[in-house]
Design a protein around this nucleic acid. Structure first.
Length: 774
DNA sequence: CAGTGAGCGAGCTTCCGCTTGACTT
């Protein structure tokens, strides 16, 4: 047993570091936190100074007992968890959980995984910072109290199994409020005017495309401007050229990596983290959960050499970036290739693409500015005061753009790319065509996973390790869904002046198509409304920032953590008690109108099983009638007539083979019921309108498909069947399924062979996550 | 696999941040 035990947080890190240290050092990993608050009740004794009740996490018992053994055998235990609040707490918890004599421990920290950094750390151990640990305890206890006090309020007042928390509830609020903004958004149209002009130089014609520096509110104004242009002359009134430059972005952090992978590669936030983890574990990139822009000196040097060798001296510029992010803890480096000299890697296509992006971004961050010349050409109209402006952009020196172009979230900039023909003040122009085109204002964009992460980071809410899980939580709770919006058609007018004639046209365009955006659900909106009404202080966008400030004071030793929690908890708990006692259950009930036949009220509300329409009163002798909303409907937007439609189901479609076909909607969407069997309706068909002919078609199709399902069965044993499934042939015995080996022909299998295959131990396959309940 | 919405009220759900591994459809 070696004399020195070093404990780090991540096993991949442990492996690397062990190589740097001699054989006197054993390096192990704790796999993150090893203890957490008990889930039995609050896990915090609110009556005795908020004493936390820590227990060793279930999945850490094995590693803790192993570490404990090694620690007691070692002379010195080096606590090398990350240098941030959580890392300090991990070290402290290790001392407690491993029951090590604190005198036997040394606390060391390093920000980069290089031999120098590690050896230097070993030479400069420090004491455990108990104040920082207390700041972490305050953070942990606060989150527990907020989460475990608020969630039960929701169970009673809204719906069981819901949840609330400092981070997730703000995420839901952002999405819910954005949707309201979009609903209330007024689309305003205006006319933008563009013109094509010809410049003649050295008996050659050049095209100059320009936009008027004014937009017109209505078609009248736009048309009258065009009229003025009919007999006007056009000349260059000004040419302005000014140099400008673009600088590269800093290297990736977790959140910028997620954003850029979403835009450039179309990865979900979870996918990005999964692939990054693979790259990290195979030693190809540095740690992927970081909020730091920092690059190690070694990385700076290799990047420098790499750029000079590949592109030349003039492309290289060493840069150090500092963070602007609220509450950044900077325990790690930025995300970069471990070996910058490696331009590409082996791996699957996702790994290759993500690596390439990281490599380019890292290299670009150490390259020189791009020098750009921007030109504005003004074109005067002899009969009007407005001017046309043509914008051009010429890259004089590409600098970092040689390697990396960052993408943006809004992609509606068109003007100002490319070269302009050479023109001079006073040149006269030949007008070809001027158009006034009706354009519309855009509502604020819905959040994508990645733009939500960006927003949360700006607000200082959540950490690199929690962005992806938070997004998954708010979807699991049913607060938000990832969805698409079909584009809608609208017409716009366009007036064109050509050959001294003004013509007008109506054209149509598709607008508002959106893909993979976050939409709030009815439950999400309702919960947000409820929390905003009663706990707006916790949902405040600045709540995290203000408690972070207090955590900092605790870390600095200016505040006692229990006191801070006490100040927060007393009024908070009062409020919780008050709401539990006095507040009504909320269902978001809304009167939609009156059913014409019965004169009864039609309500929409959130029922036990989701949004529902209710006709009649709950306390009436005649019980009310209910119908659930369809998946694409929402409580916010459903109309009375749509609501009444829902009661037309189940609908008798007609008779087929003397039996009735009924169309309705179930748990899994619209379906047909016929002869005690179920037939899912394809998306294009509606249970309200499907005809008997079409229904029969659907039924026959399904029956045909089913008949192909059975490949073989055995008279001797009815339990055993060879079936055709989604992934090809398989053997079904009772309720168990078995894979058929590739060298066997499914159609020629005998009963004995089937049973033999079933005997074989099943191969371990990939674990598939199952969504939803149970 | 697929209609639920009245209501005995058992016993359950839930937070944020660290970190990976997983044994059956």
């Amino acid at each position: 047993m070696s004399k020195n035990l070093v404990i780090v947080e991540s096993p991949a890190k442990a492996k690397t570091i062990e190589g740097f240290l001699g054989k006197d050092y054993t390096v192990k990993s704790s796999f993150g936190h090893v203890r957490d608050l008990s889930k039995d009740g609050l896990g915090v004794d609110v009556l005795s100074d908020f004493k936390p009740n820590y227990i060793i996490s279930q999945d850490k018992k094995k590693i803790v007992s192993e570490l404990k053994k090694m620690a007691s055998a070692a002379d010195i235990v080096w606590l090398a968890s990350d240098e941030d609040r959580e890392g300090e707490a991990i070290s402290w918890h290790l001392i407690q959980a491993l029951e090590i004599d604190e005198k036997k421990t040394r606390r060391i920290v390093f920000h980069e995984i290089t031999k120098d950094a590690i050896l230097n750390a070993i030479k400069n151990p420090r004491l455990l910072d108990k104040n920082l640990v207390d700041a972490q305890q305050a953070r942990r206890v606060l989150d527990r109290l907020v989460g475990f006090e608020l969630s039960p309020v929701l169970w009673r007042k809204v719906k069981p199994s819901l949840s609330a928390g400092r981070v997730q509830s703000v995420a839901v609020r952002l999405i819910s409020e954005r949707e309201k903004e979009i609903e209330n958004f007024n689309i305003i149209s205006s006319y933008k005017v563009v013109g094509d002009f010809i410049v003649n130089r050295d008996s050659k014609d050049y095209l100059l495309h320009a936009e008027l520096n004014k937009k017109f509110e209505g078609s009248k104004e736009a048309e009258s401007f065009l009229k003025k242009c009919v007999n006007a002359s056009f000349s260059i009134s000004n040419v302005e050229t000014k140099p400008s430059k673009k600088s590269p972005s800093p290297p990736f952090t977790t959140s910028t990596l997620q954003q850029e992978a979403s835009r450039k590669l179309g990865f979900s936030v979870a996918k990005t983290m999964l692939v990054a983890q693979q790259l990290y574990e195979s030693g190809k990139i540095t740690y992927m959960r970081t909020d730091s822009f920092n690059l190690s000196d070694m990385a700076l040097t290799t990047a420098k050499n790499e750029i000079i060798a590949s592109f030349g001296n003039e492309y290289q510029q060493t840069r150090k970036y500092t963070t602007k992010v609220k509450g950044a803890q900077e325990a790690h480096e930025a995300i970069r290739p471990t070996y910058i000299s490696k331009h590409a890697i082996d791996g699957d296509v996702y790994q290759k693409r993500l690596y390439e992006m990281i490599w380019k971004r890292t290299i670009a961050s150490q390259m020189s500015d791009a020098l750009i010349e921007k030109t504005n050409v003004n074109i005067a109209v002899s009969t009007a005061s407005e001017e046309f402006v043509a914008k051009g952009e010429v890259i004089k020196f590409d600098g970092f753009l040689k390697v990396y172009i960052e993408s943006t979230d809004d992609d509606n900039e068109e003007n100002g790319k490319g070269t302009l023909p050479e023109v001079f003040k006073g040149d006269t122009l030949n007008m070809q065509e001027i158009s006034a085109i009706e354009r519309f204002t855009l509502h604020p964009p819905r959040y994508t996973e990645a733009t939500l992460v960006k927003k949360l980071e700006e607000l200082g809410i959540g950490r690199p390790s929690t962005y992806a899980p938070t997004i998954s939580t708010i979807q699991k709770r049913g607060y938000v869904v990832l969805g698409n919006r079909e584009g809608k058609e609208r017409s716009y007018s366009i007036y064109t002046l050509k050959n001294n004639k003004i013509t007008s046209n109506n054209k149509t365009e598709i607008y508002g198509y959106e893909k993979a955006k976050l939409f709030p659900t009815d439950i999400g909106n309702l919960v947000n409304m409820f929390l905003m009404e009663h706990f707006s202080d916790i949902l405040d966008y600045n709540f995290t920032a203000s408690v972070e400030k207090e955590f900092d004071e605790i870390a600095d030793g200016h505040k006692i953590w229990n006191n801070m929690i006490k100040e927060f908890y007393a009024p908070f708990k009062e409020k919780v008690k008050d709401i539990q006692k006095n507040s009504e259950k909320v269902s978001g009930e809304k009167l939609l109108g009156i059913e014409p036949e019965s004169g009864k009220n039609v309500y929409v509300k959130l029922g036990r099983f989701g949004p529902v329409i209710q006709i009649g009163e709950t306390d009436d002798v005649n019980k009310p009638r209910f119908a659930g909303l369809m998946k694409n409907q929402s409580m916010e937007t459903i109309t009375l007539s749509e609501a009444l439609e829902l009661f037309k189901l189940p609908r008798k479609v007609g008779i087929y083979q003397d039996k009735e076909i009924v169309a309705t909607i179930g748990k899994f969407g619209p379906y047909l019921k016929f002869d005690n069997s179920f037939y899912s309706l394809p998306k294009a068909d509606s249970p309200f309108t499907v005809t008997i002919e079409r229904a029969i078609e659907v039924i026959i199709e399904k029956l045909e498909k089913d008949s192909k399902k059975l490949i073989k069965e055995f008279t001797e044993n009815a339990d055993v069947k060879v079936l055709n499934g989604r992934w090809g042939a398989y053997i079904a015995i009772g309720k168990e399924n078995y894979k058929i080996p590739k060298d066997k022909n499914p159609e020629k299998l005998s009963l004995e062979e089937c049973l033999k295959i079933a005997e074989q131990p099943k191969k371990p396959g990939k674990k598939v996550f199952r969504k939803g309940k149970k």
